[in-house]
Amino acid sequence: MTYAASRPEQEAQTGMAPPPELADWLAAVAQHGDRQSFARLFQWFAPRIKRYMQRLGADPDLAEDLAQETLVQVWRKAGQFDSSRAPSAWVFTIARNLRIDRLRRQRLYEVELTEEADAEDEQGDGHQRVLDRLDAGRLPDLVGALPAEQVEVIRLAYFEGLSHGEVGKALDLPLGTVKSRLRLALTKLRSAMRVEP
């Protein structure tokens, strides 16, 4: 396998923040099936999802098809979007699940992750707390500020769909190093994403 180490440099401009209107467009689609807002969402997301699918092994025709289908699902499920989360994260999960279904013929078992569901939790285990608010808008800059070696393992996991073992083989790194880089990256992002109360 040759996952060229040049990739992180080629895509170093992770600072590209999504337009702030994404959430409004999603709301307009959810509330009154607004086609113009859908068109804007499509024009922003579909080309990126097509790239995502190609990175994960789809040929251009299939990638185009999967990008289109992701956006059709965005239309259909817009009412389920939780406005406390980043629109791009929600669309990412739809694209991710579609590629697992179509490219791997598997599924990813999921649970509801939203804050509201946590508030209803009745386990009485002391975890009923107001979750920190994420400042997800800063995330692209934060990713750009991570060390290149951490960005490299993140990209292989998210965009090549590689397991830790496969990432280790691709980069000729011990498994423990792959895991510690991912762990460090998440810890750093988590602390940086949280706004001071």
Partner: peptide, 22 residues
């Protein structure tokens, strides 16, 4: 919460991808 944050990371990475012409 940790998965939610890692999912936000996925969204940010998707947003940062170079758009492919449709």
């Amino acid at each position: 919460e940790h998965v939610r944050d890692a999912t936000e990371l996925g969204g940010a990475l998707l947003a940062g991808l170079d758009p492919a012409p449709l």
